[in-house]
Amino acid sequence: MPVTVSMTVNGKAVSGEVEPRTLLVQFIRENLKLTGTHVGCDTSQCGACVVHIDGTSVKSCTVLAMQAEGSEVNTIESLATNDELHPMQAAFRENHGLQCGFCTPGMVMSAVDLVKENPDPSEQEIREWLEGNICRCTGYHNIVKSIKAGAEAMRS
């Protein structure tokens, strides 16, 4: 039996008819056509689907759309303003923190949340924070470097 779900996504009030079994990531990708949020696994581990709900990073593949009812959801598409990259996005570009780009939206959304909690993270803290984000291309080396630089840019 379809149900109606409503929330605010990237600052815009949205609602849709969904089956209760619809995941938040499906709602974002299929109903809202925001395809920057990706799905890379089915065991809640890869983190390609990370979005923010009420300002906190979560895995949108492990949240029902209905669980986000009434929430403020932000996806990767919300970060750049007027075509200008967010400092964290810019840091990833500057430091070659991405290769194939598939894990990148989740990685960046996770990183932005880290800096919110910890404005000046050490390399170790960054590596530990990324426990839930898998990248197969970069070996994480430049991702860590990017986040360090992105945090610095976000502080200033």
């Binding site: 990767i76 990833f92 570009r93 991405l98 780009g101 939206p105």
Partner: peptide, 8 residues
């Protein structure tokens, strides 16, 4: 990178 970083 721009398109990958912005979800495009």
């Amino acid at each position: 990178d721009y398109r990958f970083l912005t979800g495009n």
